[in-house]
Write a protein that binds this DNA or RNA. Structure first.
Length: 321
DNA sequence: CGATTTTGACCCGCGC
DNA sequence: GCGCGGGTCAAAATCG
């Protein structure tokens, strides 16, 4: 029970689909086939999520996998009603244009400990539609289940929506490329649309830091005015890295890395109200189990590994040796 | 004092 | 080619 999450946790729901491509860029890439992602729950539980209990997203996962592997954007009818795939722009060119944060430097990619260092201070303007994006509609509670630490880096009014979209990036680890966007559903103020992109380059926190929510005001002033909802108190997002994170060793076998990436596909998953909704579960759900697909790499290579121009997180995902 | 938030500007992709 | 919309940057402000 987190009673302290009040607004604290509002944005912590992303624990999710970490480890993917972008992250991979900063991570040492284990042999592709070695992405069991079966670490203990404290770290990455991709596998976990993918295999255990009734996974409401199982179907989605399958579809997604297929999508990635086949490089086809053809969601099948098998899609559960609650899950929908938003296909990204047909164009999948993953290039790497000056994406500082995602520049994949083979050399740098060899160590998790140097992500930031290896990243050139180049502007990182990711292309739209090029990054794997997982979208999910969740409730405030679910949102609060996110154990990751997020730092807000932007907010923009979205056309057609009375609510602004907030941009967050993982602050647990400096080089972490995981990001999330949170906005309130225009149709249901109780629902939050959360989009995750990028992968975490570090283990997932097992619990919220004691500092969680202790930082800053509960409700950001900005959120209270400008017709913005006070729903995303940034404070919620900010909490220092929990033990698991701090204990993370650069030598740790690519946690997230294992991940793989989902690139270019946007997955819309409606929150499954039925799933056991405790925070942990939710967080787990948010993880991207699909990433276990090693074949995905192939996809990237095929798609355009050489276009040095355009890449966004996804691309970098890896530049195969 | 360090970390985070705020916010306007900048940049890029995309549609026309 | 142009303009719009969205995503990110980064300086300043704020908070604990």
């Amino acid at each position: 029970m987190d009673d302290d999450w009040g607004l604290h946790a509002v944005v912590r729901g992303c624990a999710t689909f970490n480890t993917t491509a972008s992250a991979v860029a900063d991570i040492p890439f284990p042999s592709s086939s070695s992405l069991p992602l079966h670490n203990d729950k404290n770290s990455y539980e991709f596998a976990d999520i993918g295999d255990d209990r009734d996974d409401p997203f199982q179907g989605l996962r399958e579809i997604y996998k297929k999508f990635c592997v086949d490089e086809q954007f053809s969601p099948t009818a098998a899609n559960p009603p609650q899950e929908t795939l938003q296909m990204p722009a047909p164009r999948m060119n993953m290039q790497t244009q000056g994406n500082s944060q995602f520049n994949v430097n083979p050399a740098s990619a060899s160590s998790l400990s140097v992500p930031a260092a290896n990243c050139q201070p180049i502007r990182n303007r990711r292309r739209k539609n090029q990054q794997a994006k997982r979208v999910r509609e969740i409730t405030l509670e679910e949102l609060s289940a996110d154990l990751w630490a997020w730092r807000k880096y932007g907010q923009k009014p979205i056309k057609g929506s009375p609510y602004p979209r907030n941009y967050y990036r993982c602050s647990t680890s400096k080089g972490c490329a995981a990001r999330k966007q949170v906005e309130q559903s225009p149709t249901d103020s109780n629902i939050f649309i959360v989009s995750y992109t990028g992968e975490h380059t570090h283990p997932r926190p097992t619990h919220r830091s004691s500092l969680a929510g202790s930082i800053r005001n509960k409700i950001s002033p900005a959120a209270t005015n400008k017709n913005m909802l006070p729903l995303l108190p940034n404070s919620l997002l900010s909490f220092s890295s929990p033990g698991s994170v701090s204990g993370f060793s650069p030598n740790t076998p690519l946690p997230a890395g294992g991940a793989v990436e989902q690139n270019n596909a946007a997955v819309v998953v409606q929150a499954d109200e039925d799933s056991e909704g405790d925070e942990e579960d939710i967080a787990d759900i948010l993880f991207d189990p699909i990433n276990e697909e090693e074949d995905i790499f192939t996809v990237f290579q095929d798609s355009d590994d050489h276009d040095s121009s355009g890449a966004d997180g996804s691309d970098l995902m890896f530049s195969p040796p």
